[in-house]
């Protein structure tokens, strides 16, 4: 079973209890419909597991099939610079069908980001590099499509429907 090659670190976006016994990491693409389906499932699992779960999201945009995916990922990183990564992450999945550049800027406004700063950061090559680095860490860890999940550093290849995934996560607690 492939293992996560790049351990969760300070560059990652982490939600929930940092010391939780279970770490669930997703490699995802904001324009991927399967990731869109996974989004509310993960939310629900986070709610049910509470402080026992830490959730981490890394970018894995498939640029050739999803032409807006890279810019959507960059916009989440630009929002992160204003401490609103998760707000943007959620918003992008909720409005997945409209991820053109104009919409991304509109979303920044809706989330009450400093839009001028957001637009400047959007052009920052370091943010593209961050997205590329996420992608490469995924490829090297055996990510073969999205969403791909790693649980406590091990690739999870079973179904991610809520019941199966939650049952598996809870089994790790006992």
């Amino acid at each position: 079973m492939p293992k996560l090659r790049t351990a969760v670190n300070s560059k990652d976006h982490v939600q929930g209890n940092a010391n939780a016994p279970i770490e669930l990491l997703e490699y995802g693409d904001y324009q991927c419909p399967h990731c869109g389906h996974a989004y509310p499932i993960i939310k629900s699992i986070q709610k049910k597991m509470g402080a026992k779960l830490k959730f981490v999201f890394r970018n894995f945009p498939l640029a050739e099939v999803h032409p807006n995916a890279v810019h959507a990922a960059v916009s989440s990183e630009a929002a992160a610079l204003q401490n609103k990564f998760w707000e943007m992450h959620d918003h992008l999945f909720e409005y997945q069908s409209r991820l053109d550049d104009k919409s991304l800027v509109k979303y920044a406004g809706q989330l009450k980001l400093n839009v001028e700063q957001f637009e400047t950061d959007f052009e920052n090559p370091e943010l593209i590099q961050k997205v590329d680095a996420d992608f490469e860490s995924g490829v090297r860890s055996g990510v073969n499509g999205t969403p791909s999940f790693f649980i406590n550093g091990e690739k999870y290849d079973d179904s991610w429907d809520e019941e199966t995934l939650l049952t598996y996560l809870e089994s790790l607690l006992t």
């Binding site: 498939l62 640029a63 050739e64 099939v65 992608f135 490469e136 490829v139 073969n144 499509g145």
Partner: peptide
């Protein structure tokens, strides 16, 4: 399709 699609994205690497 998924496999070739993935390699299409990793050509740079």
């Amino acid at each position: 399709s998924d496999q070739m699609g993935l390699y299409n994205e990793t050509l740079k690497l």
